[in-house]
Design a protein around this nucleic acid. Structure first.
Length: 772
DNA sequence: GAGTTTGAAACT
DNA sequence: CAGTTTCAAACTC
């Protein structure tokens, strides 16, 4: 980054701008190493403000805290990170930073989403207003985007503190200013400042809550713009100007404040409302668990770039689209989603986005499937979010921006999926890395599917339905609550945006039949804390099969078995025969498990290497024996599960069971590391989320238990099967996957509360009562 | 890639 | 609720 800019600066100087006092000033300054982040007023301000808000707050339901929304500053990303890093819970490792980053981003996303939603709802009504608002946003967004990009880069590249990064960016920006300035503003620096900077500044104040205004910031922002867009700086500026003119006048603080207010007032509610309405579920916005929200964030985030890329919007949007996975559950959400797109497009000013996705009404012909898109809604496909590794995400942002800046509108027909694929591949690659510690091969959908399969069967699915039209649970996409996407090889697919209503109705029908139909098959309750050392907690199961399998011939050793597939042991609720689930047997676990475990350990040479694994097994065995039988039964597998799957390779019984065992063996590669790296942060997040969710859904009593343990370690206990295995299906899914060795979270669906409660009850009952 | 096996989902 | 059919994934060759 630096290198390119510097030269440019030099060029600018060569252009004869050296004369300009500003240039000289900047030129002199730029070489100077960035002052300490903390020194900057900006930074200080940021820290002061909402940035300092506890992480938990982020996860708290967005709507709950509308007041904070206004404070959300996209630019925060860069700034916040440091803070996050400081937070006790945050991990300073790269992983940690990335996660933290995501969290931060979530904030932004929230605001973004809210904005979008507002537009959606009101666009038709008050287009002018929105236009102005949106216009006003743009500059800021741009800034944000830039800032985020840079921060992202930094994060990806190194674990520098954001502050430093921001500083550097500023420097660069300054340089850029010089450069771009000449072309455009030779004599009119003042003009620029008046026309462009002011706007941005105005936005900024709003963002910053008006508490702080950094004089240097504006210029930097402007500069940033130029830098980011490189050659297109001018156009970008022009766009900005256009926007400005459009809005009539640069947004003043007042307007900014309005904007903020709007966001706070409308965003969350509108957003969620829409989702809620459309959802088959009765969730109310307030009800949404923090986890979900947080989950949603990333998805939304995908949209974020759009806003800050006025001219490149198309490319971006396309890119983003690719990342999104549509939620089937939420009709409105879907609609809103569209609306969002439209709105954003509209918003983005001249975004006559040649949409990448060409939706053909033809059912049978595999239309260009709309790239999966995660809806911020109940029926979230968390894959998009969780799946998108923060780092990747960041990287993607960077890349997308870069690419976009280079005018790479996704060719409509060509490969709309590149984006998606990239995402998917990236995601999964990353996930795979976590899970299998092995680079994933990218190939046919089938391969992908395998790859995507994180075990719980909820991961990114690529169906190949033929007769079901992808409207039955047979369809993994449908079951996962996502629209079929390009990689799918299904025929006569109705599971697409076009047939949204059909999908929804079908879904509702299915749900009416079986409220849990879309519930995650495997409920993960608390893996995060379950690290190698956590076994002492007697926290056995971190997950379990929701309903239990019914295997007969597979002995629960193959993917046919949902439990096995989900990487969980069979529970008492299973009706399987001759259960040999490597993750835990249904009955007689203790005794058998010992042998099994030993055998498994022997067989899994990889694991053998990992001493911890061995130890864990031992512990597990002991626990299994020592623990009360009933609990063991329930948690049987759990014990094993308690440790990240990676650590415990399924005893490759009999057949070197092709995929799963293999992968698990791979997993073993760096199990501990994987687990460790991610766990801490996850735990925090999860806990906060979980707590919220529990409180909301389960009620105080339950939540109390859950909440009681705010610390990661305790969290495990809280969820521990020993107590009450409160595993709100959705939540479980949503939460656990993240934690589990790079597993993806898919929120298969969010059951209506009733069902949820019922589910819980049922679960509890099941766990308390012997299996039929 | 085609065919078989398998167990869940759907249906009755 | 139980039995049967249908279905698509998993698996095998």
């Amino acid at each position: 980054m630096d290198t390119p800019d510097r030269p440019r600066a030099g060029a600018a100087a060569a252009a004869g701008f050296e004369d300009s006092p500003v240039f000289n000033f900047i030129n002199n300054l730029s070489p100077i190493p960035p002052p300490k982040p903390s020194d900057t007023a900006h930074n200080v301000q940021l820290f002061k403000s909402s940035d300092l808000a506890p992480v938990s707050s982020i996860f708290a339901s967005p709507h709950v805290n509308p007041a904070k929304e206004p404070k959300i500053l996209i630019r925060d990303d860069s700034v916040q990170l440091p803070q996050e890093l400081h937070s006790p819970s945050s991990v300073r490792t790269r992983v940690g930073s990335s996660i933290t980053f995501r969290m931060i981003r979530c904030k932004d996303i929230v605001s973004e989403n809210c904005n979008t939603t507002c537009r959606l709802n009101e666009a038709s009504i008050d287009s002018s207003d929105h236009a102005s608002n949106s216009e006003s946003q743009l500059p800021q967004s741009i800034q944000n985007g830039v800032g985020s990009i840079e921060s992202d880069k930094d994060q990806c590249a190194d674990v520098r503190t954001d502050l430093t990064i921001s500083q550097e960016c500023t420097d660069l920006e300054g340089i850029n200013l010089d450069e771009s300035g000449p072309d455009k503003m030779d004599s009119s620096h003042s003009d620029i400042h008046e026309n462009q900077l002011p706007e941005q500044n105005k936005d900024e104040p709003a963002v910053y809550n008006g508490d702080y205004m950094i004089t240097s910031q504006p210029s930097s922002d402007l500069l940033t713009l130029g830098l980011t867009f490189g050659t297109e700086t001018q156009s970008a500026n022009g766009t900005q100007k256009a926007d400005n003119s459009y809005s009539g006048k640069p947004l003043l603080n007042e307007e900014s404040s309005d904007y903020c207010i709007q966001n706070s007032a409308h965003e969350p509610h509108h957003y969620w409302t829409g989702a809620v309405e459309g959802a088959a579920v009765n969730y109310t916005p307030q009800v949404l668990p923090g986890a979900l929200q947080s989950q949603l964030m990333p998805c939304n985030k995908l949209n974020e770039p759009r806003d800050f890329m006025p001219t490149e919007q198309n490319a971006l949007s396309q890119h983003l689209r690719g990342m999104r996975r549509r939620s089937l559950f939420n009709e409105k959400a879907g609609a809103s989603n569209k609306g969002v797109d439209k709105a954003s497009d509209h918003h983005s000013v001249k975004s006559t986005t040649p949409k990448c996705k060409t939706i053909s009404g033809d059912i049978n012909s595999k239309p260009l499937r709309t790239p999966p898109c995660a809806l911020p809604g109940i029926g979230l496909h968390l894959n998009a979010l969780a799946a998108i590794p923060k780092e990747k995400l960041a990287a993607r942002d960077i890349q997308s921006n870069i690419n976009d800046s280079s005018n790479l509108p996704c060719p409509a027909g060509s490969s709309p999926m590149p984006s998606e694929q990239n995402i998917i591949n990236d995601d999964f690659a990353l996930t795979t890395n976590f899970a299998s510690a092995e680079p994933s091969s990218q190939g046919s959908p089938k391969k992908k599917r395998h790859k995507f399969d994180n075990g719980d069967g909820t991961s990114c699915k690529r169906c190949s339905c033929k007769k079901s039209k992808c409207l039955k649970l047979y369809c993994e996409c449908f079951a996962a609550g996502v629209y079929c996407s390009e990689p799918c090889t299904c025929q006569g697919c109705l599971n697409n945006e076009i047939n949204m209503e059909t999908v929804l109705s079908t879904r509702q029908q299915i749900e009416s039949r079986n409220p849990l139909a879309f519930a995650p098959k495997v409920i993960h309750t608390s893996e995060p804390g379950l690290e190698l050392g956590d076994f002492n907690n007697n926290t056995p199961a971190s997950a379990r099969h929701k309903r239990g399998c019914n295997c007969k011939k597979s002995s629960c050793l193959k993917k046919y078995c949902e439990c096995f597939q989900g990487g969980v042991g069979c529970s008492i609720s299973c009706r399987c025969e001759s259960c040999k689930n490597a993750f835990g047997r249904r009955e007689g676990v203790a005794a058998l498990s010992i042998e099994e475990s030993k055998q498994a350990s022997e067989e899994s040479s990889a694991c053998v290497k990992e001493e911890k694994c061995e130890i864990d097994k031992q512990l597990i065995i002991h626990q299994a024996i020592d623990l009360a039988p009933a609990e063991n039964l329930l948690t049987t597998p759990s014990i094993v599960e308690a440790r990240p799957l990676a650590c415990l390779p399924p005893p490759s019984s009999k057949k070197p069971s092709s995929k799963k065992p293999r992968s698990s063996a791979k997993l073993i590669g760096h199990p501990s590391r994987l687990c460790n790296s991610r766990a801490p942060l996850k735990t925090d997040i999860l806990m906060s989320q979980f707590g919220n969710y529990a409180e909301m859904v389960l009620g105080d009593s339950t939540s109390d238990n859950l909440k009681g343990n705010s610390s990661p370690q305790t969290s495990v206990k809280v969820v521990s099967p020993n107590k009450k295995r409160v595993s709100p299906p959705r939540m479980g899914t949503g939460l656990s996957p993240i934690c589990k060795s790079g597993r993806k979270l898919i929120l298969k669906s969010i059951p209506s509360f009733p069902s949820l409660g019922g589910d819980l009850n049922n679960e509890d009952q099941k766990s308390k009562t012997p299996a039929p």
